[in-house]
Design a protein around this nucleic acid. Sequence first.
DNA 1: CAAATTTGACCACA
DNA 2: TGTGGTCAAATTTG
Length: 307
Amino acid sequence: MTQVAMEEKILINGLEQGIELTKRLMSNFKHTSSAESNKPLISEILRIYQNAIFMLSFNDDDKNIVKRSHDTDEKDYKKRKISDKKTEKVFVFVGTGQEKDSVDDGYSWRKYGAKEISGSINPRGYYRCTHQFTQNCLALKHIQKSDTDPSIFEVTYAGDHTCNNNSASQATTNFHVSMFEEGNRAGDVTEQREDIKPIKTEPVVVSLEDLENQRENVVRRLSFSNSNHENVGEWESNVFLGNVMKNLMESLSPATMSWSEITSEIANAPASVENSETAYSYFSSLDNIIDLGHEDWWWSARDILNW
DNA sequence: CAAATTTGACCACA
DNA sequence: TGTGGTCAAATTTG
């Protein structure tokens, strides 16, 4: 594992911890205050996380960030399996929840194989969409538990869902943070890095429906990197943010605040970082917050946000 | 009993 | 020939 990868992991774990704290905080807070006063907090938290993730993708930029465009390849659909698919690697950090061997991402999967992977301790599981035959849905995914950290799952998706039978309705109690790490081979446009540097954060507009039913749409609308191409950081951040929001929604009772309220609140949040220095300062403060530990963090947040 | 999983066989590919 | 992805029979699960 490279140095960068290690830093990445540490950062993500910290962020994930922060989210757990946020969940708890919000859960507590809803009993003692109005939803209205929660809004600025939510915005601030989201912004901080957004910037942290920004940093993450920025750090990533000496690796291959660009996802291989998989267009105009559909000629030889003879070899219709995983071979030439855009396969994105995803790290899923499962929150404190129960140990499971898979990750609930809203779709229903059917395991069709498992394989020992050379050099890895844990086997890799092979899944296809449950509706592969009934709806001709050719989505696939592979899951492999990390050797070093049992709470991390390496998930590779291949193929798009054409089915609509995802079980998006039931909310997960677990909290997932998903992140793409790399596209693939070395020859891939690493020199276009300058173009990829995120420039500015756009207002966030997302609907919960889209998040849970149509990830692809979420990717586009939640985008806060520049990018004509979809790049990895984009996806990563979107999934991350989407999960943040989802959990905030779960923490708040549905009656106290509607999703559209949150959405507009987020959209009105100040546009964030213009450059990496600013982003770094945000990141640092987040880092400090995490360092404070659970109880202190709560009070620290009170100070920062002027409650 | 149907649907999902396990597990070794099979097979493609480098 | 080794590795990794899929198949499918056996088995488990609900």
